[in-house]
Design a protein around this nucleic acid. Structure first.
Length: 543
RNA sequence: GGCCCCGUCGUCUAGAGGCCUAGGACACGGCCCUUUCAAGGCCGCGACACGGGUUCGAAUCCCGUCGGGGUCACCA
């Protein structure tokens, strides 16, 4: 089998979002499919100092680890640290006259673009000869310059592994910037050099890069690099057809904030002080849909206007983790957005996906992200995976939900909980449904509607059942769920009561609510003392 | 707007000229099971964007129309 070296090369501007996750997954799958001959590399594209942050890199790695998309290069490649490498190559390109310094100011370029636009033609940048005098003058006055690659004017074509033959006619060829004024290479230059140096053979990336590929192959030709296999992936869209982006969360918060300001009327200053913002900053954000808040700012605003995390669309990998998705399920779902192994196969383990993956199976058309299908996938993965194996995912969930009392639980307990709630849709459901087991007895809050319906109605039949049960359970020595069920079954037969009439009062007494994991197992886990304590407290205080 | 890509149920898709009165999954509706919530079982609803060709025969090939996406940076 031929060697496959694929890579994922994100720019660190925040948490990983699902589109990026899918790109990473495909590249990972491609490498893993090749087994021992495959490598998956990770590189950080941080040539844009203004947008890249250290923190974002950390988050990115964390997300990738959570997904289980492990990379094979021990040492992470940061483009920002390779400036000298790039510049040496750029200088040699200049020496060979394959690249040149261009002194146009941004204003000049803008003006040229405007003119082109007015004349309804495309702006094409080609080398503009300047006299030696002029050059000297520019250099003397220290006029800033970029370096452009002198792209040979000819037709370019390449075979895209997913899209097929792609052509760029010669009249669209132009000289593009490879070194910015600040001395950093542009993305186009850095990718080409790094992919070559890292020995990358397969590049899977978003469709927005399709046309960039011509620039990259021109550079490869000039530098004598081999041309890797390219495959451009379709875009993931929202259900309404809009592009699924990190901004969607921001958008939702902005809408909610505007609504909050309107009815009932609140002042901008009130909101600003509630979330600790300077009013002008807040106002700007509210008006300008291009502005974005960072994560802490978002939660400050959400807190101020009473918007819950669960009201926001999940976009970032982190959101899905926090919500209680299992990484394998997310990955399985993502994989099927634009790829399928052919036939009816849908539910797959990571191993199966690795085995079945191929570039040929990648589709060309955009896919809409349907969360309800993802939810179903999560449910099915949860169901088919043994509870024990789900514990790490549950832990990872709890890690980002530090407020959950389940953080106190042992792994064994978590496994039991998972087992009890088999059929759960989200880990969050297991969490929320089990919290009653990990809070103090006197912290149970009785839902008034539940008390009314289950305990008080029908001349307080529920209450009298509860008193009977208390007596029975005091005498109960074996508190295993099977023994408990036995006892209560017998009681029901004697009283001619269906299990519902007995289980529900018990549920309310122990959990405060009408919804819980299976009741007998819950009682077993709670233990005799706490069960009795809760029944007593309920009889005493709930009515 | 120029250029590039795409177009099968509401959604993800199977389909590579006859196997298609178009298959699966999710969602939705109904029924069943049930100690709650789920899960599960069964049944149902539901698509080849449109118009022309080519062919004995087209969801599959060609052309056009329409629709969607991408891209036109010293951002990646």
């Amino acid at each position: 089998m031929a060697t496959v070296v694929s890579r994922f090369a994100p720019s660190p501007t925040g948490y990983l979002h699902v589109g990026g996750a899918r790109t990473a997954l495909f590249a990972w799958l491609l490498a893993r499919h090749a087994g021992a001959d495959g490598k998956f590399l990770l590189r950080i594209e941080d040539t844009d100092a203004a947008r890249s942050t250290e923190q974002a890199t950390t988050q990115l790695l964390e997300d990738l680890r959570w997904l289980g998309l492990h990379w094979d290069n021990a040492e992470l490649v940061h483009q920002s640290k390779r400036k000298d490498v790039y510049n040496a190559i750029i200088d040699s390109l200049i020496a060979q006259n394959l690249a040149y310094k261009a002194y146009d100011t941004r204003e000049e370029l803008d003006a040229l673009r405007k003119i082109a636009e007015k004349e309804k033609r495309q702006f094409i940048y080609r080398r503009r000869e300047i006299s030696g005098d002029e050059r000297q003058k520019f250099e003397a006055e220290g006029r800033p310059a970029v370096v452009r690659f002198a792209m040979p004017v000819k037709e370019y074509r390449f075979h895209d592994a997913v899209l097929g033959e792609i052509v760029l006619p010669a009249d669209e060829v132009q000289d593009f910037v490879i070194r910015k004024e600040d001395g950093m290479p542009t993305y186009h230059f850095a990718v080409v050099v790094d992919d070559a140096e890292m020995g990358v053979t397969h590049i899977l990336r978003g469709q927005e890069h399709t046309k960039n590929t011509f620039l990259h192959i021109a550079l490869q030709d000039a530098l004598g690099y081999a041309r890797p296999v390219y495959g451009h992936l379709s875009t993931i869209l929202n259900l309404d057809g809009s592009k699924m982006g990190k901004r969607d969360r921001d958008k939702k918060i902005r809408q909610a904030a505007q609504l909050w300001l309107k009815n009932p009327p609140h002042s901008l200053d009130a909101l600003a002080s509630a979330c600790g913002f300077a009013p002008p900053r807040l106002e700007q954000w509210l008006k300008d849909s291009k502005q974005q808040l960072d994560l802490p700012e978002q939660s400050a605003v959400m807190h101020a206007i009473g918007l819950a995390e669960s009201d926001l669309p999940e976009i970032l990998v982190h959101d899905f983790r926090k919500k209680g998705y299992i990484p394998e399920a997310l990955l399985n779902f993502l994989a099927l957005l634009g790829w399928n192994p052919g036939g009816d196969k849908e539910l797959m383990s990571m191993d199966e996906m690795q085995k079945l993956f191929s570039i040929e199976g990648i589709g060309k058309s955009n896919a809409k992200f349907d969360r309800s299908k993802l939810l179903a996938f999560n449910t099915q993965h949860g169901e088919r995976t043994p509870a024990k194996e789900l514990v790490p995912a549950f832990r990872a969930y709890l890690e980002v939900n530090p407020d959950s009392p389940l953080n106190q639980a042992t792994d064994e307990q978590l496994a039991t909980l998972l087992e009890m709630k088999k059929g759960f849709r989200l880990l969050r459901e297991v969490d929320e449904a089990s919290r009653f087991l990990f809070i103090p007895d006197d912290a149970i809050l009785y839902d008034p509607a539940a008390v009314e319906k289950v305990l008080k109605k029908d001349s307080a039949q529920g209450l009298s059942v509860l008193r009977d049960l208390h007596t029975l359970l005091v005498a109960q020595t074996d508190f295993s769920h099977t023994a408990l069920e036995q006892t209560i079954q017998t009681y029901g037969e004697q009283k001619q009561l269906g299990l519902g009439k007995i289980a529900q009062p018990l549920r309310v007494a122990v959990t405060g609510n009408t919804i819980s994991p299976p009741i007998f197992q819950s009682l077993e886990m709670l233990g005799k003392d706490r069960t009795l304590a809760r029944i007593e407290r309920c009889l005493r205080t709930a009515v």
